[in-house]
Design a protein around this nucleic acid. Structure first.
Ligand SMILES: [Zn+2]
Ligand SMILES: [Zn+2]
Ligand SMILES: [Zn+2]
Ligand SMILES: [Zn+2]
Lengths: 132, 132
DNA sequence: ATTGCACACGTTATAGCATAACGCAATTGA
DNA sequence: TCAATTGCGTTATGCTATAACGTGTGCAAT
């Protein structure tokens, strides 16, 4: 998926996510954009929908939050599964790929004749700094 | 985690999940138990909290739903990661383990000195029957 | 027996996440 | 020009989850 020119709202939402230390909920994004005229959740969700579609933002299913892609331009997104490690203390997110994990999961899927659309891998725990 | 005797509410919630064809939301469970005296979401959530703790129920993070464990008594739960394939058409859920996937993820985690607490692997798509 | 504690339970209220449905404006392309 | 698409704003609503308070019961330590 190639990324077209972002609209005003899409840019605002994306900038907020890029500058954030960690993942943000849609309502947190909304609050950060009230000064820029945002008034309703839909303004955020509609922008997020597009940003997800373009692959420049990821949704963290296990914490109902969104994060800017850590590997912009990386073509792994087009042929691999994205995985996340989420620190439950400081909120830091690490995004990574593992082709062997992809391969094993897709092997299993093939054996079941299951047709995958979207795969979620999220590891929640404590990052090195917070575990110390 | 060994499973103690379930309380009345826990049994009711578990039975509903066991008899269900697919995953259920907490509010769907609530509706199914109104005839048994359930009136409020907390009655469901409190039961689910324990059932999750005992490992007899799993939470599907990507669809905010709960499902009875498909492998009761299987000791994989104590030393492995549970993965799910969820059909977005018929709702059917397949639960499986893959030790190689576990191994690769834990290798990555070890390299980052990340301390994992809970790992989610969910593949959403179409099952064989629905994809046809 | 009395006290203290842990735990399950019931209820009300509230917080947090997400979408439906309407209408308007700008853009595009036939 | 006309139709289709897309983005946007607004209001209302629905779905998911927890806070906070109080009750009752069983059980162990004193
Ligand atoms: Zn990414
Ligand atoms: Zn941390
Ligand atoms: Zn299981
Ligand atoms: Zn299906």
């Amino acid at each position: 998926m190639t990324t077209p020119q972002l609209t005003k709202n899409q840019s605002l939402v994306f900038d907020v996510l890029e500058k954030a230390e960690g993942p943000l909920s849609a309502y947190t994004i909304l609050d950060k954009l009230r000064d820029h005229g945002f008034r309703a959740p839909l303004q955020v969700y509609r922008a997020l929908e597009k940003l997800l579609e373009y692959g420049v933002v990821h949704r963290l299913e296990s914490i109902n939050s969104f994060v800017a892609c850590a590997h912009p331009g990386d073509d792994c997104h087009s042929h691999g599964i994205v995985a996340f490690a989420i620190c439950e203390s400081c909120g830091q997110v690490m995004e990574f790929h593992d082709h062997e994990v992809d391969h094993r999961l897709m092997e299993w899927v093939r054996g079941q004749k299951f047709k995958p659309e979207k795969t979620t891998i999220e590891i929640r725990g404590l990052c090195e700094a917070c575990a110390a």
